[in-house]
Simulated scan of single mutants.
Amino acid sequence: MRFRYSGAIMVAVVFAAFGALPFALSSWWLAPVLLVPAAIGLWAGRAGVDAAPEGLTVRGAVGSRRLDWSEIDGFEAVGKKVAVLLPSGATLPLPAVRPTDVPRLVAAGGRVLGGEADTLGS
């Protein structure tokens, strides 16, 4: 199962790029303005979480991290965001995952929510 940000972000990126184009073409030193919508588009298209029976893959704009289910102590909800609790006590934010998505996330891994390792703290 894949969790990604809304496709509406990409529509906004296209509008921002078209809006920045005349400004960026007005002078050569303003051309890097086009990098802003490009960077946001890269992030929006790539960031998210892939859940599989083997574990989670957390993807950022340029990197990713693979976690086996055995490496996950639980989940923590902070506002509208969710983070994974690691055995070291550290947390890893899950992009594009909302607290209401946690049961689906855990079910995609073939696990049952409610065990000690699958708790959602607040």
Score class of each variant (00 low, 15 high):
A8S: 03
G55H: 10
R59Y: 01
L86N: 06
R104C: 00
D50W: 07
G110F: 00
A31L: 12
P103C: 11
G115D: 04
A90Q: 13
G48S: 06
A17I: 03
G19C: 02
V102A: 12
V82A: 07
A108T: 01
G114H: 04
R4N: 01
W43T: 06
V36F: 09
G7C: 06
T91L: 00
A52Q: 10
F23A: 03
S26P: 04
K81P: 00
S122V: 09
A108I: 04
W69A: 00
V33R: 09
Y5T: 01
L42P: 08
V62W: 10
G41Q: 11
A77E: 00
A52E: 05
A77S: 01
S26K: 15
G109A: 02
P32N: 13
F23C: 03
A38I: 10
S88N: 06
V14F: 07
V13H: 14
M1F: 10
A8C: 03
E76W: 05
P22H: 06
F75Y: 11
A52V: 08
S64M: 11
E71D: 10
R59V: 00
G7S: 14
G89F: 10
L35E: 02
F18R: 08
R66T: 14
V78Y: 15
G7I: 04
G19S: 13
V97S: 01
D118H: 15
P93T: 02
A107L: 00
S26F: 08
